[in-house]
């Protein structure tokens, strides 16, 4: 409960992450393009260590005029995939890409005086 200091913001560069235990809960703190996000390190599927998974982009596709399908990445660095079964989640929202009825728990993050702080309810 309350505000917990994770550490210096410089210790988590853009694209980086740190997994910390705050108030008895494992939380992944991610730096996505200079903004910090905190997610519970417990996959919404079966509880795997989702925040330790690969950070990647969202593979997206569109059908071009003429019928060819073009596949490309969006949201580079905004997605984390659970190493247990590969479920993908948006880091900023915690939403599961394949089925947004599932989501990771998110926590508010602030950066003050170069310190990253997570606010637990």
């Amino acid at each position: 409960m309350g505000t917990h200091v994770v550490g210096s913001s410089a210790a988590i560069p853009v694209g980086g992450r740190q997994i910390v235990t705050l108030g008895g809960r494992e939380i992944g703190v991610f730096n996505v393009g200079g903004r910090f996000y905190a997610l519970l390190n417990e996959c919404a599927h079966l509880g795997g260590p989702v925040c330790s998974g690969e950070v990647l982009g969202k593979l997206t596709a569109e059908v071009l005029p003429g019928g060819e399908t073009r596949e490309y990445f969006t949201q580079d660095g905004e997605i984390v995939a659970c190493p247990w079964h590969g479920w993908e989640f948006e880091i900023p929202t915690g939403l599961c890409l394949a089925d947004p009825r599932f989501r990771l728990r998110t926590f508010p993050v602030t950066v003050e005086d170069g310190l990253v702080k997570v606010i637990l309810p």
């Binding site: 998974g53 690969e54 990647l56 995939a81 190493p83 247990w84």
Partner: peptide, 9 residues
């Protein structure tokens, strides 16, 4: 392993 993302610790 879905392009390498599955990991066993």
């Amino acid at each position: 392993e879905v392009a390498g993302r599955i990991r066993r610790d």
